[in-house]
Nucleic acid binder design. Structure first.
Length: 1042
RNA sequence: GCCCGGAUGGCGGAAUUGGUAGACGCGCUGGACUUAAAAUCCAGUGGUCAUUUGACCGUGCGGGUUCAAGUCCCGCUCCGGGUACCA
């Protein structure tokens, strides 16, 4: 009898549930540790083995920290709003809440079997009104806040109103959309509507009319990170640009803090880099250019103000408002035409031909403020309206895009930065511009002779003094569009009075999602909420019909876990000051520019409000790699191609190859084979076509005098001997005008589907791969019976097998998906091997951060290991055999070595090497037949994070009270690891030659002597001079000989 | 194009600080037990050569630093991911 994991696992899973073993409460006597997984969106497909990978890792770490004496918060919940449930509702009419609840139940059930130590009492579901009440509440706070750059902090909007009333907005240094200055007097005279419009420019949640990513197929607006290459990330529908009124979050106010914060957190360098790029800070200057003959000025942003003297033209984005005012009459038509096509072009089309250089001259000129040169103003698509000021000064000598543009339109190029000091080149000979910031200035008036680094502050200073510009930092980061035209999301706590938005009072929250008759936009194109009856306040003011995007609910969920049942506050002061923030966050790196930016912003805002107590929400982030599917393929034979191939082989074997043309063409007719000497055409036909040969054959034969032999596919494949006989007859029997296939052989024969094994020669010429369910394939061998049952049409399938009689499948690494039949669910594996084995196996696949293909082959090894570990405690009849005998030094050494190594591995989340250490330890103890409590008991605690269910059982059987989860983690004792001797590898010139055992405390001189006298050494020293001996204690001895 | 990762046996991977390359597992080969199979156990398993002791080669490629390089430096190749007219 061996380890009965089914019974044991069931027992402990229900024990944990019944006793709420992992229920966590704030306990100031213990240090806290917060381990969080990115909560899943519960899709209808359920979990596959890839999902729990990160959960296993975090659970192992959470359990490890618990053993170390930490009070560990380890919650789980569901990101429940989202498109799939809504799409499903549109198709079937099922309320998304129903679908979502069903899916959550399924996820809970699946997760429940895997041995996690989640505190389910803290579960949060973003679609639950008790939860989204606080999402709405936060929105209201954002709406009622502005960002004060002087204090680097969000502040109440009332404070801003106070300032306006006192002194207008002249001294206000705020994050805001475009505003004109006004005095206190003017402010007081503005109407309510005007005041509200001005305040909207300052609010951290604001309404604005902008170009958005509109996805007609989904009927909604998408955020930038939801669009990939001009298509929606979900569903892959085309996305267009459209001007709409939308809610925004002023995340750009936090750009600098989001950037600076990255240096304080323990995240992978790569994901920090992605965020840095996304935030896209660039330092430069704003410069004002006069427009010749106009009062207006052109404001541009540049990161290279040092190259200002090299500006030879200006370029405006097609959307730039000034274009129409400055374009000269003779250029008007051309410019209008250009703008029209450019603006209407979708994002997708623009991306499609990035390389194409287009542009048009306005006829107007700008004046370079440093040298008063007149330079032409152009309009071109390569300048984007959304970045900087939508206008640039073009310095073709030192910017590759400007350079390409100048070349294309034959505009002048002036070098102002040289590679070597005072060494001017001829830009006409250049293939590309010189963009580097290494260099010296020339042709630049006051800047001449300076380095680029010196010139930048000098020119900014100069411009500032002249009132012609100033230094500025620009960010690529855009404000986040917060409106979605969907049903299944949080309603905005907003109503409209005379077109002006107002937020609901906090006591009116949550504003629950209304029922609607259909989950589609209205006939007028309004969002689905417009279908709801009485969607208005009690006073009759209409409520907002947009809903919030997916990232709304996930931006603050980690805070809500701290105090999930609080209906008075988002979370209590006590809870947050105890739990602080997430110590370890585990999840996929696909959220780098979405969730992980938004929630950092969300947290910083709540921090400014004094709610969150830390600036950053996630101290350490680990991105688990994706588990990819390993698809299996069978190769379906294309029967016609196969028959052709076989026949050709037969012809060649018969020695007729030189007389036969394959793929014979006559005019525009093509035939399979043509036997030249006997003028015989051979055509391979399916049975149906043989029944009624096409009439043109008769005509063709009559006209050309060629003869024709029609052969059925079936006979070529299954009656090869007869076929060659038929062909031979036809060749010789030249008397016949034409030879149709013999009638007597013409019985109806059905052709069964035929499949060919992977390693059959030339297989790829006449077969096509077909995904098969990976459950029918074991070590790449196909279970033919299972395959026949898989699909009715393959019931009578036939197979071309390998020499050893097996059908071997091909394979490929791809994303796991239903359509590829490569999805492995955890359920099947838990059923077969148990949760502990699955946990350890997923860890054993390799480093947690690495993507890896799923492969079930190795799981047997973990299963064997588990049984072997169990046998350290039990005899063949499953009786405990643990003894109280004193352990030997050797056994103690194995134990303490393992404790040391495994603790180190846990500490650095290297769980695959931890499992391997346990294997080594188990192998060693097995061969020593060690069954001693002194050794085994600490090992049970040590293995419990990896295999918690088995560990609980062993712990109880060893006479302890459950649960092992809070047992003290064993520590290693160096004294058991100490050795008197060390086996030194001895190398000569760096090559290891032999080993020698020496005392650990040996001196370098003694070691050298011992090595040089060793008999094995003589061979290597002989005839050579020993130049040097390197002795590294407890490492190596290297002898340098020459 | 730019920015990050990565490349080690048949496969997943180990080597944490420059110090015995290939731990551990899978797979494979042979053996024991068995009527047989499964399970289990034992032995072998980077390549080439050598009957043995053993020798040489070997961490994508080319160079370098060092007593010593998978690890550090320079130059490439290939693979994966991100991003893209961001001035």
């Amino acid at each position: 009898m061996e380890y009965n994991f089914r019974e044991v696992e069931k027992k402990w899973l229900s024990y944990w549930e019944k006793n709420k073993t992992f229920r966590t409460v704030e306990d100031p006597s213990k240090p806290k540790y917060y381990v969080l997984d990115m909560f899943p969106y519960p899709s209808g497909a359920g979990l596959h083995v890839g999902h729990p990978l990160g959960y296993f890792a975090s659970d192992i770490y959470a359990r490890y920290m618990r053993l170390k004496g930490y009070n560990v918060l380890h919650p789980m919940g569901f990101d429940a709003f989202g498109l799939p449930a809504e799409q499903y509702a549109i198709q079937t009419g099922t309320h998304p809440a129903v679908t979502t609840e069903k899916n959550i139940r399924k996820y809970r059930e699946q997760l429940g079997k895997l041995g996690f130590s989640f505190d389910w009492d803290r579960e949060v579901v973003t679609a639950d009104p008790a939860y989204y009440k606080w999402t709405q509440w936060t929105f209201i706070q954002l709406y009622k806040s502005w960002y004060n750059y002087d204090k680097c902090k969000a502040r109440p909007i009332d404070e801003l109103i106070g300032i306006f009333e006192k002194e207008g907005n002249v001294h206000v240094n705020a994050a805001c959309s475009d505003v004109k200055t006004f005095t206190a007097e003017e402010w007081k005279n503005f109407s309510e509507k005007e005041q509200q419009e001005i305040l909207m420019n300052y609010r951290l949640a604001y309404l604005s009319d902008t170009w958005v990513n509109w996805c007609p197929a989904l009927g909604t607006v998408l955020a930038n990170d939801e669009v990939k290459d001009g298509f929606s990330e979900r569903g892959g529908h085309p996305v267009e640009r459209k001007k709409m009124k939308q809610w925004f979050l002023r995340i750009t106010a936090y750009a600098q803090r989001l950037l600076d914060g990255l240096d304080t957190i323990d995240w992978s360098e790569s994901i920090k880099e992605v965020q840095r790029n996304w935030i896209g800070r660039s330092e430069g200057a704003v410069v004002f250019f006069d427009i010749d003959g106009h009062k207006e000025q052109l404001e541009i942003f540049t990161t290279r103000p040092d190259t200002l003297f090299g500006a030879t033209f200006m370029v405006l984005a097609p959307e730039h408002p000034v274009i129409r005012r400055i374009t000269t009459p003779e250029h008007r038509d051309e410019v209008e035409e250009y703008i029209k096509t450019a603006v209407n072009r979708s994002e997708r089309d623009r991306i499609a031909d990035v390389k194409k250089i287009t542009g048009v001259f306005t006829g107007a000129y700008a004046i370079n403020p440093v040298n008063n040169e007149k330079i032409p103003i152009w309009v071109a698509e390569y300048v984007l309206a959304g970045y900087g000021t939508g206008a640039i000064m073009a310095v073709p000598a030192h910017d590759s895009r400007d350079f390409a543009f100048a070349r294309h339109f034959n505009l002048p190029v002036i070098q102002v930065v040289t590679r070597e000091k005072n060494k001017e080149e001829d830009p006409a000979t250049w293939e590309d511009s010189y963009d580097s910031k290494e260099g010296w200035l020339i042709n630049s008036g006051i800047l001449n002779g300076m380095t680029v680094q010196e010139a930048i502050p000098a020119i900014i200073d100069h411009l500032k003094k002249q009132n012609r510009g100033y230094g500025k930092v620009n960010f690529r980061l855009r404000d986040a569009i917060f409106s979605r035209q969907r049903y299944w999301g949080e309603p905005f706590p907003v109503y409209y009075k005379e077109g002006i938005p107002y937020t609901l009072d906090e006591d009116q929250l949550p504003l629950e999602l209304p029922e609607v008759d259909k989950y589609l936009p209205t006939e007028k194109g309004e969002p689905p909420l417009a279908r709801a009856k009485n969607w208005s306040t009690p006073e009759g003011y209409p409520l907002e019909t947009n809903t919030m995007p997916g990232f709304a609910g996930s931006s603050g969920y980690y805070l809500r876990y701290m105090d999930p049942h609080n209906d008075k506050e988002y979370f209590s002061k006590e809870a947050v000051s105890y739990w602080q923030n997430v110590d370890l966050y585990v999840g996929g790196d696909e959220h780098a520019t979405g969730h992980l930016i938004y929630s950092r912003f969300w947290n910083k805002f709540l921090y400014d409000l004094g709610l969150s107590v830390t600036e950053e929400p996630f101290k350490k982030l680990v991105n688990q790699g994706k588990i990819l599917g390993r698809s299996s393929f069978v190769y379906r034979v294309n029967l016609e191609k196969y028959a052709e191939y076989l026949l050709w082989q037969m012809i060649r074997n018969a020695g007729e190859a030189e007389n036969v043309i394959r793929n014979y063409r006559d005019g525009n007719r093509r035939f399979d084979f043509y036997h030249t000497p006997s003028r015989l055409i051979i055509e391979i036909k399916s049975q149906e076509k043989l029944e009624k040969p096409e009439s043109y054959y008769e005509d063709y034969i009559r006209h050309t005098g060629n003869r024709l032999l029609l052969l059925p596919i079936h006979d070529i494949i299954y009656m090869t001997d007869d076929i060659m006989e038929d062909i031979r007859q036809a060749i010789e029997d030249t008397a016949h005008g034409h030879v149709f296939f013999d009638d007597h052989k013409k019985k109806i024969r059905t052709l069964n589907p035929l499949f060919v094994s992977k390693n059959i020669k030339d297989r790829e010429q006449w077969s096509t791969p077909l995904h098969v369910d990976i459950n029918m394939v074991h070590n790449d061998e196909l279970d033919i019976e299972a395959f026949r049952k898989w699909r009715p049409e393959f019931e009578n399938a036939e197979f071309i097998l390998e020499e050893d009689g097996k059908y071997i499948c091909g394979w490929e690494i791809e994303k796991m998906s239903k359509s590829k039949h490569n999805v492995q669910t955890p359920d099947e594996l838990v059923e077969k091997y148990g949760a502990d084995v699955l946990r350890m196996y997923e860890m054993f696949l390799g480093p947690i951060e690495q993507s890896k293909p799923w492969d079930t082959n190795g799981i047997e090894g973990i299963s064997r290991f588990t049984k072997k570990f169990w046998r350290l405690f039990h005899d063949q009849d499953n009786r405990m055999v643990v003894t109280e005998e004193k352990a030997t030094d050797e056994e103690l050494k194995i134990l303490h070595k393992t404790i040391k190594k495994v603790r180190e591995d846990y500490e650095r989340l290297s769980f695959h090497t931890a499992v391997s250490s346990f294997m080594i330890c188990t192998n060693d103890l097995s061969s020593l037949k060690c069954h001693k409590r002194e050794i085994l008991e600490p090992l049970v605690i040590l293995i419990s994070p990896l295999a918690p269910l088995m560990a609980e059982e062993l712990w109880e059987n060893l006479g302890h009270q459950p649960s092992i989860s809070f047992a003290p983690l064993p520590d290693h004792d160096e004294k058991y690891l100490a050795e008197d001797t060390f086996e030194y590898p001895v190398s000569f010139n760096g090559k290891m030659r032999f080993k020698i055992v020496l005392p650990v405390d040996i001196s370098a001189d003694e070691a050298e002597k011992a090595v040089l006298q060793a008999p094995q050494a003589q061979k290597w020293i002989e005839g050579k001079a020993v130049k040097k001996v390197i002795f590294v204690p407890k490492r190596i001895i290297n002898v340098v000989v020459k």
